[in-house]
Design a protein around this nucleic acid. Structure first.
Lengths: 149, 149
DNA sequence: TGACTTTGACTTTCCCTGACTTTCATTTTA
DNA sequence: TAAAATGAAAGTCAGGGAAAGTCAAAGTCA
């Protein structure tokens, strides 16, 4: 399959370059004889943050796509919480999680403060009350993922 | 890329002169072999207030462009940003702010990562796209406030 | 059948240029 | 000497080109 081939190629380039690389979408597509958006598809479907990759890009002349492989020595703590959080997360629960993470030196106090505020009802005030717990859960998961490196 | 080169050159001059400088657009363009409006483009796209620069200029004979890199202290910085953020905050703007806060040692890299993720479109995925910038602005302001203490 | 792939048309972003406009200081003119 | 002309800057804007992003439709495979 084309996608697999592209993914393998990118993996190999990452290996050669110690985990990060910059590529040009059109160029790579050209050399593989595929359509440029195929490259986009592979990157968005395979090189996701969940699987430990960071993507950034720039459009326009001389643009590029940058892929970085995060060294995921999986912190089981974070994983544990990640999977423990369901579709919704109430303010109270969130605070409990943070205390736990703080107690276990997974985050600093300042970081806890930041996260508390980011996910506070106050910050999410423009969202309908029923929706807040959902957004809060998403924010939390996103942060936990970002801390797993 | 020409723009990057020009931006680097200006940054370097700023470093050498302790954070502020006066340049002549035509002269600089000449020495770089580019069109004068290219300099304007770089200045308006890269040396924005969001990134902590002040621009003033004068036309006519002996005119010039003055660039000042604002050096503020922690709380001033936070205050400045707090007031700069309006009702909405786009992803792109948010990142620019964070880079600035990071560069000025107001936040750590990990904190920047946390905030980036907390306010990412991905984390706010359950909100309608038009609403995200509003929530993002709220989250940011909340976090900035929490850091001023 | 349903999830994943592939494609291509269209959109957005960014860079770069050049023509034209505005502003300011200096010089010339009435 | 006041007003007008001149010239030297910077500002603006539209347009073209290059690259990546998006999305829906069609195709494939388990």
């Amino acid at each position: 399959m084309l996608s697999d081939q592209i993914a393998r190629m990118i993996e190999q380039m990452l290996d050669e370059r110690g985990g990060s690389l910059e590529l040009q979408r059109n160029e790579l597509a050209q050399s593989l004889g595929c359509v440029p958006s195929q490259i986009s598809y592979v990157i968005t479907s395979r090189f996701t943050p969940e699987r430990g990759y960071l993507i950034e890009s720039r459009r326009g002349g001389g643009g590029h796509i940058r892929i970085v492989r995060k060294k995921m020595h999986r912190d089981e703590y974070l994983m544990h919480f990640f999977y423990a959080i369901g579709k919704r997360l109430e303010d109270r629960e969130a605070r409990a999680y943070l205390v736990n993470l703080l107690d276990n030196d997974v985050i600093t106090e300042r970081e806890a403060v930041i996260i508390t505020n980011a996910a506070s009802d106050a910050a999410l005030g423009s969202i309908a009350p029923e929706g807040r717990a959902i957004v809060r859960a998403d924010i939390f998961k996103r942060i936990l993922l970002s801390l797993m490196q």
